[in-house]
Simulated scan of single mutants.
Amino acid sequence: MSDWFDTYGFVVVDDGGLVTGGYPLEEEDVRRLVERTGVTRVLNLCEDREYEPGEREDVERAYARRGIVEERLGLVDFGDVLPGALERGVQTVVPWLQEGETVYVHCRAGWQRSATVAAAILAVQHGIEPDEALGRIQRRKPSAQPLHHQLEGLWRWWRARLARDEAPPEA
């Protein structure tokens, strides 16, 4: 197992099948993730430039051997998590969870981007506000600490979603 994955690891943050953590870098990381959580789907928030040569390919092969579907939503490390990206993450992961899949949402270390996106997913899935969703994640994964501007983006997305859902139908 890679030192990175051993250090940052992964945690089941919701009994409905949501797991978050750091990025797997080799076959052994994927094996451990699957054996311990049963992951069948992955939402990868990393950009290609975050990987060393050959790492992405190794992980892609490991996923393919296990029949794991991976979607990519590259978000800039330490950057903003914009409402459109949050909505895309929610629209990707919530249906997987509703179908009974176990989903791994990860960024590089599993502290910021993945926590932000996972909070959006739990907010929609459970009908709770983002702070409560993040609190649920942090109880199981105390290292989940989105940056201030990422939390602002999460709330902008949430308020826009609520306004859209409450808007009267167009005539």
Score class of each variant (00 low, 15 high):
R56E: 09
D165F: 08
L122E: 09
V12W: 03
F5V: 10
G22Y: 04
V117T: 13
R159L: 09
R136V: 07
A133Y: 01
A85W: 12
I68V: 07
D131K: 09
D15S: 12
N44C: 14
A109N: 05
R49W: 15
G127P: 07
Q91K: 11
D165Q: 14
G79K: 07
E70P: 04
V103E: 11
W111L: 15
R140D: 05
E52T: 15
L154C: 00
A62D: 10
L33G: 14
Q112T: 12
A85Y: 13
W155A: 00
L86N: 14
G9I: 05
D3W: 14
W157V: 03
L162A: 03
V76D: 12
L162I: 09
A171Q: 05
T20L: 03
V94W: 07
R56C: 05
R164M: 01
V93K: 03
A123G: 13
L25M: 11
Q91D: 15
L82F: 12
V124F: 09
R36Y: 07
I128V: 13
Y104F: 15
W96I: 06
H148A: 13
R161C: 02
V34Y: 03
L75D: 06
R32T: 05
D58S: 13
R66D: 04
T116C: 03
L97K: 02
P130L: 06
Y51G: 10
H106G: 08
E47A: 10
G100D: 06
E132I: 09
V13G: 01
P168W: 01
L122I: 15
R31C: 00
E99Y: 01
G9F: 08
R36C: 08
R139P: 03
V105Q: 04
R31S: 01
D14Y: 07
L33Q: 09
E71Y: 07
A109R: 11
S143P: 00
Y63Q: 06
R36T: 12
L45D: 04
L82G: 10
D58M: 12
E60G: 03
A167L: 05
E26V: 06
K141P: 00
P95N: 12
E132R: 12
